[in-house]
Structure formats: C-alpha cells, structure tokens
Amino acid sequence: MIKNILTLIQNDLAIAVKNKTIFLIFFIPLFVFFTLKIVDSKNETAHAMNLGLINNEAYSPVVIQSLKSSDKIFNVIYVETIEEGKNEIRQKTLDGLLLNTNELIILKKESLKTISMIEGLYSLQQTAENKKSWVSSVTALQSTDIQKDSLPTWILMMVLLVGFVIMPSQVAEEKEKKLLVSLLQTPMREIEWLMSKIFTGMILATASILILHLIGNFHTGINLNYILIILSGSFCFSSYGVLLGFLCRNQASARILGVIFYLPHLLPSALSDFSRKLDVVAPLLPSFHFYESIKHILFDQARIGSLGVATVYMLSVGVITFAASYFLMKKRWLM
C-alpha cells in the first residue's frame, strides 16, 4: 500500500513538473520576495513629503523657515491657486496643501500620508516653540468609506480574473481539443474568432462588475465615464488574456501562465497607495492605469477626457496584444 502511494505521489509530482504547475511553487515566493523588496521597509529612510503652499499668500515666517529647513521631512512646492493645489493632490504630486488660514488639505483623512504629515508639522511646530497651532483644520478631498474605497480593488480583481485566468484557459482549451482547428475549416475569419473571444471577455468582466454593484450595495453612481473606462479596461485585459492563451498548448499551461501574470498586475496596482517605490513601478502596468482611472471616476468625479493617457495606454495594450494574437493564429501557433 505504501509503495503504491509513493508511486502515485511520484507520478503526481511528475505531472506537476510536466504541466508546469511546479513553476507556481517557485514563482509565488519569488514574487513575494521581490514585492517586499520594492515595498518601503520600515528601516528605510523616509521620503520627504511634498507639501504645497500658495504663492503670494502670507504665511507666518516661522512656518516658512521651519518648513524650508526641514528638507528631510517636507519638500515645499509653491502653487498659484488652491484649485491647482487640489489637482496636484489628486494627481499625487502633492501630499498636502497648507493654507495661511492653517487649514491643511489632504486626499484622505485616514491615510498613512496624512498621519505622517500632521506628525511632521506638529514636530516642527514643537521645535520652533511656536505655541500657535499650524494646523487648525484638516479638509479631505475624498471622503473615507471603507466599502466604497475597496470597490476599485474588487473591480480590478474581477477584470484581471477574467483577463488572466478565464480567457487564457478558454483559448487554450479550444486549441488543446482541436476545436479551433475545426473552426478554421469553416469560412470563419481569424479576426472574427479573435473579436468574439475579446467581446466574450468584455461581457464577462462587465457582467461581473454589474452583479457586484447589484449585490454589493456600493453607493456609487454609474455614469458614462465609468462605463467607458470599464469597457476600455476589459478590452485591454481580455485581449491580453487571449494572447496568453495563444502562447500555451494546453489548459494547464494557460492556468499557470495566467496566475503568473495575474498577481504582478493585481498587487502592485492595489498596493501602490501604500508604497512610494511601488508608485514608481506600478504605472508601467496597464492594471495600474485601470485602477487609478476607476478611483478618479468614482471618487473625484473625473471625466474620461481627463484620463486620456490611461485610456490610450490601455487601448494600446489591447490593440498590440490583439495584433500579436492575430499573428500567432495566422501562424497556427502550437495548434
């Protein structure tokens, strides 16, 4: 009995090596290792925060002098108007804006950056032995609602799940079972098959978001900008997923490749809020642009026109991966 169990375990491990499942055993720890390297560690020298001041406004000389002499805690950046400052905060080029009325404008009240900023200002005030409080009120540009705040992450997870797990597996299944080969013996054009796959991915992703809204009771309005950005994102990741499926001979490989792409696209985007280092790396990923765009639309009521770069980036990734899939299909790649 033990001999048989050992033989079967050996066989299972051989299958895991053969269908490349074993790669995940190495990939996930390696991914976590590299992500932790990128995420700011507690021992790391803290980055100076970007604090905005309004040009030509009268600030207390003590405040100005203290801020300028504390270049390890704050980078002082002057803006012309309050509106400009608010925009910079939304675009994350400023961490906060201090007005001469001692009002501090930040993005969210309950964020690590806000706590660090208030701590920094308070310690400077103590050092300057200034008894008058430098910050009398804090105004957040985005209200904090844990349920609503988590919505972009759920949406990102679902769109990436469709793109990187469902689509590659479906494409690889049609290749593995030679169903695509039989379809190619009909007057169906290659481009029609590819478009049908991408539309299927977009329908699945959009339907899952719709269901999320219906049962999740998220208090957000659905408008045209929101729908357009979801369609752009689902196009991008469905097309990306079809390409991954095309690179695989069978479903097992497609599932593994899907996970290998899923995690790096999900985590840096969702974690970029907490790490300055990831904030630098994440914009290379289309998932980051999708995630940020959803946040801007949901929380800042941004319009799609103001998210031009993100939209063009996602659509470009979609078009490039579509073209690559078309090329592989024409070449009958691994079919």
Partner: peptide, 9 residues
C-alpha cells in the same frame, strides 16, 4: 471537408 483522426467536437 476534413475528417480528423480524433473527433474534435
């Protein structure tokens, strides 16, 4: 018309 060795249905 092509009839494959293994039915791909």
């Amino acid at each position: 018309g092509f009839v494959s060795e293994t039915p791909n249905l």
